[in-house]
């Protein structure tokens, strides 16, 4: 197993290097450092003067020093590969530099955003896993029953609903209309960030946190459950038709024991793999959910940096999310071996 893990990590290194080169080249080829000035309200005569003078050009030196952009320091003259090496060698040492736009340490912004996204992922994945497995098992065990049809139908609805639409509908229903229905003057569920600034004390803060989490987690969960429950149902159906399940049933084992002890464990293997891969993608993939619910997570950070053309902040973001995708791919492989002893990792 250890050999396998070491080898997989070794395989990941060139993948990550290639990813780093590609993101660097593409980001520099396509980014617009001045895009934030597209908003006319910010585009004062004075700002334009600054633009024309080139004071917002991309600087090179600031990868390390963190100084704000200066006219004299432009990266546009250096060859791309030289810039790439300069950036990568510092990134590998953990020096991500400061944002071109805010002047803040990129690593600090990433940490803060990562924490928020992680909260969504943890709750979303936990709830999704519980619901998906329950629905998948129920649908498989009672194949072609009314509950199966209902869950199958709902899965398709969940898969086909755009996240932004579901999120806004959820806000309207559970934040606006539910409060009106219950005649309360404050939303039962919040749609703005992860906490209120006025909640003090552990219990009120926890309650406030739950009320903030409910809708974004529900939005995140709907599509995940729709997808994972289909995997689980399919996998469970395969296992339930296997000989060893028939044998266990023939031996007179209780049905509950057959399903949960013998069938479910094996049926989880494909789902766990899919889950691991999906979770890796979630670290950078909650753009819409975070935007709608004004949560400053990785997705929101990405949008903001992209809008600002802040390549200094974009590059570490892309690399961190790439690392997570690779990491969870590795985890999927390892879990596959752990869950199924028949698979020999050599």
């Amino acid at each position: 197993m250890l050999t396998f893990i070491v080898r997989r990590i070794a395989y990941s290194i060139p993948v990550l290097l290639l990813a780093s080169l590609l993101v660097f080249v593409f980001v520099h080829a396509t980014s617009d450092p001045l895009a934030k000035y597209a908003q006319s309200r910010d585009l004062t005569l004075k700002a334009r003067q600054g633009l024309a003078q080139g004071i917002y050009q991309q600087p090179c030196r600031e990868f390390v020093t963190g100084s704000p952009p200066t006219k004299a320091m432009t990266c546009t003259k250096a060859p791309v590969l030289k810039q790439y090496w300069y950036w990568l060698s510092h990134f590998l040492k953990g020096k991500m530099g400061n944002s071109f736009v805010t002047g803040r340490a990129v690593s600090a912004d990433l940490r803060s955003s990562f924490g928020n996204t992680l909260q969504l992922i943890i709750w979303g994945v936990l709830i999704s896993a519980l619901l998906s497995i329950s629905i998948g098992v129920l649908s498989a065990v009672r194949q072609y029953s009314l509950p199966d049809y209902i869950f199958t139908g709902l899965s398709f609805v969940g898969l086909s609903m755009p996240t932004f639409w579901f999120g806004l509908i959820a806000i309207d229903l559970f934040s606006n209309r539910l409060s009106s229905l219950l005649h309360v003057h404050y939303p039962i569920f919040f749609s703005l960030g992860l906490h209120s600034s006025h909640a003090r004390g552990f219990f009120p803060a926890a309650l406030d946190y739950a009320r903030h989490l409910a809708l974004p987690v529900a939005t995140l969960t709907v599509q995940i459950v729709a997808s994972w429950s289909r995997y689980e149902r399919s996998s469970m159906l395969d296992v339930m038709s296997a000989d060893y399940i028939r044998t266990a049933t023939a031996k007179g084992l209780p049905r509950r024991k057959v399903i949960f002890r013998h069938a479910l464990r094996n049926a989880l293997i494909p789902l766990v793999t899919v889950m691991a891969l999906d979770i890796g993608g979630l670290f950078g993939g909650l753009v819409v959910t975070e935007q709608i619910f004004s949560i400053h997570g990785m997705g929101a950070l990405f949008l903001s940096d992209l809008g600002n053309g802040d390549t200094q902040a974009l590059l570490p973001w892309l690399m961190v999310t790439a690392v997570f995708v690779v990491l969870f791919n590795l985890l999927a492989d390892v879990l596959y071996g752990v869950l199924d002893p028949r698979i020999r990792l050599s």
């Binding site: 309207d172 934040s175 606006n176 749609s191 935007q291």
Partner: peptide, 10 residues
């Protein structure tokens, strides 16, 4: 989202 947040009183 801002419009919804306003409507909900947040």
């Amino acid at each position: 989202a801002e419009q919804q947040d306003y409507k909900s009183g947040q």
